[in-house]
Design a protein around this nucleic acid. Structure first.
Lengths: 367, 367
DNA sequence: TGCAAGATGCTAGACGTCAATCAAAAAATG
DNA sequence: CATTTTTTGATTGACGTCTAGCATCTTGCA
């Protein structure tokens, strides 16, 4: 039972500076600087010497000093769908909360609203920011080749592009920050299957639009699991709602009327306030089960009220943080710090965060 | 459908410096400096003028420059339970992965191993680091007043203390970074209830020790939910295992032999490899349900093999990141950036991260 | 009125890096 | 070998803040 054993992850004498590296390498500061900043006109031999010295000393560039010197500011933009949308309100709220801390780190963030899901709108927005000289942008993407040129133009200006929540075609972006929606759908399927515990069932699926990649992926994953593992559960064809709360309410009402033996509803999209409204005043089996996406004020409430049993969430705060980290790293040309997959998070009414996500209460949500 | 609407979260002309503030306030740089650094000997009138100017200009201190100048390095220590423990191996692995990026930000992290859960060991470790002059430490805590003095001594040396995963008595730490274990237990209860879908059931609870606060909390939350909402489910008294895999295996075997009609097992503690081993070769009802804590290689595997149905996880990577952020903020005397609650994360076999958590495969885990 | 204490101004060097210049040395070329 | 070309060294002034020393100007108070 000895006291303790210290294991220094990294030894912590005074950190070596570039001057130290130069000295150890036997070259001048200027040459070492040429090497680490890739300024060219350096002999191979010298390059090697400098690299060896860096390795030997464990030199790591002091980012604070570097950024100070080169007056680096990170000019970022987030392109988010316009409108009163509870999910993106969360994204935006989180960004707003961070502002103070971000400027202390020399990063500024513009939030630019785009016409949600309209290719033309996205394209216009991309064109319009081309001359704003952003260092990095996070885009809620669309799967279309139409935006290839504006993205290319941006990239050629030196802007780093990442996609957020919804991916862009892979070639167009440096990273995607969002969950795996097939996994999200599968998760919904698994838990729905679980909730039936061998009983037979009949599930009404609801979606915004099949053109939205995330919706399609979720449905796909959901179907996969139910078909693989829960043969007694029947899947009714999904109805489309354009994520409009009124539509969602009506459509679910209709479905329940048509098939009173429906045992569960899964909405992969938004507009859940409509869904909840319908469920509130309609009779349904005792063991009825309802799964929706994204924790926003009204789904939070519905979870507590037992109108909804499960919410699968993307953790927009985590996503935003991650987007910021990745953008900064990419802009600096550093490698991205290791991070685990973003995982669709499951909320039941017992693991809800204590604070209702800070959002102005609005109508639709979107995922 | 106009192009786009730019909403600048913060306007982004060149950032005002302290000199600007001084000029606008009509005082000298020295005075402005005295104000923002609390050096005293400044007239109230001047203080006000400086604050007004700061507000007017939206001045935010450039942390990079400040840290560079005062040669600030963040010397941190993480006190983690010693031994081959899969959960803390994840914590440590994550720290190791971050090292490169941390030194670039002038933070060094020592990992100090302590005798797990032994008050004497923790106390010794705390005493032994007293003269190491750490700026901050993250401690996997214990609920005991015995460590009051060493903690007090540390704090008086100016060390910031936060508790990680398992809390310290509230007065002794500046922040707790960990999940709400009652919520975790409740979540387990909810999903277990769900899995029974009205059927009757009988649950064997398993725990490491009732002295571990997290275990106790989880059991408590679990019982709450089952008793409240699932009256057909009977709870068998928990058996204690000291988180020893062999013991866990034996104990579960015994329980299943004694009551073959057990429909579920919930282990709030560690040693799950033993549990899995037992389940692998024993016959149990078709609708048997098994919940454990912490995603580590063998629970990951068990989830895929269907020996375990649910894993409730703490996301040690998220916790570590958060601990680092909070420690830095506290050390700087800044306010802590807003962050959402840490939420017990639920894994089923469909939302697993694609990479197995990077850990050396070891025997026990601990949560 | 005089004097101490308090408030303020001024200045300069440091932190580690970037970016640029200029001169000098070394290597490649014909 | 002379001449280019490439490579190197040495130096310098930022960047925004901290810290310290010292001189000057206000006060309040005896």
């Amino acid at each position: 039972m000895k006291a303790s054993h210290t294991d220094t992850v990294r030894d912590s004498g005074r950190k070596p500076t570039l001057s130290d590296v130069a000295r150890v390498a036997g070259v001048s500061y200027a040459t070492a600087d040429r090497v680490i900043n890739d300024r060219g006109n350096v002999a191979q031999k010298s390059v090697r010497k400098v690299h060896d010295a860096m390795a030997a000393l464990g030199y790591v560039r002091n980012v604070a000093a570097a950024n100070l010197s080169r007056q680096r500011t990170y000019r970022l933009a987030f392109l988010l769908p316009k409108g009163r949308n509870a999910f993106f309100s969360r994204v935006r709220a989180h960004l707003d909360n961070l502002v103070e801390h971000l400027i202390a780190d020399q990063v500024s963030v513009d939030v630019i609203e785009i016409d949600a899901f309209e290719v033309a709108g996205l394209k216009n927005s991309l064109l319009s920011i081309a001359d704003a000289a952003y260092d990095g942008v996070a885009v809620v993407g669309l799967q279309t080749a139409e935006i290839a040129e504006p993205l290319k133009a941006l990239r050629e200006r030196g802007t780093v592009i990442v996609s957020l929540v919804s991916d862009l075609p892979v070639d167009y972006r440096a990273a995607y920050i969002g969950i795996n929606n097939i996994a999200a759908g599968r998760t919904a399927g698994r838990l729905l299957g679980l909730s039936h515990a061998g009983r037979a069932g009949r599930v009404q699926m609801v979606a915004g639009s099949l053109e939205a990649r995330d919706h399609e992926d979720r449905l796909h994953g959901f179907r996969e699991v139910i078909n693989e593992d829960y043969p007694n559960i029947e899947l009714l064809e999904p109805v489309m709602t354009r994520d409009d709360a009124g539509k969602v309410g009506a459509v679910v009402q209709q479905a329940l009327d048509a098939a009173p033996d429906v045992t569960a509803v899964y909405n992969v999209g938004a507009g859940n306030s409509g869904l909840v409204a319908t469920l509130e005043h309609c009779t349904r089996p005792e063991l009825f089960f309802c799964i929706v996406h994204e924790l926003v004020p009204h789904t939070h409430k519905a979870l507590l009220n037992k109108h909804v049993d499960l919410v699968i969430d993307q953790r927009p705060d985590v996503e935003v943080n991650r987007a910021l980290t990745i953008l900064k790293a990419l802009i600096d040309g550093r490698d991205i710090p290791p991070m685990q997959d973003l995982v669709p998070t499951i909320y039941v009414r017992d693991n809800l965060p204590s604070h209702i996500p800070d959002t102005t209460l609005t109508e639709t949500q979107r995922s």
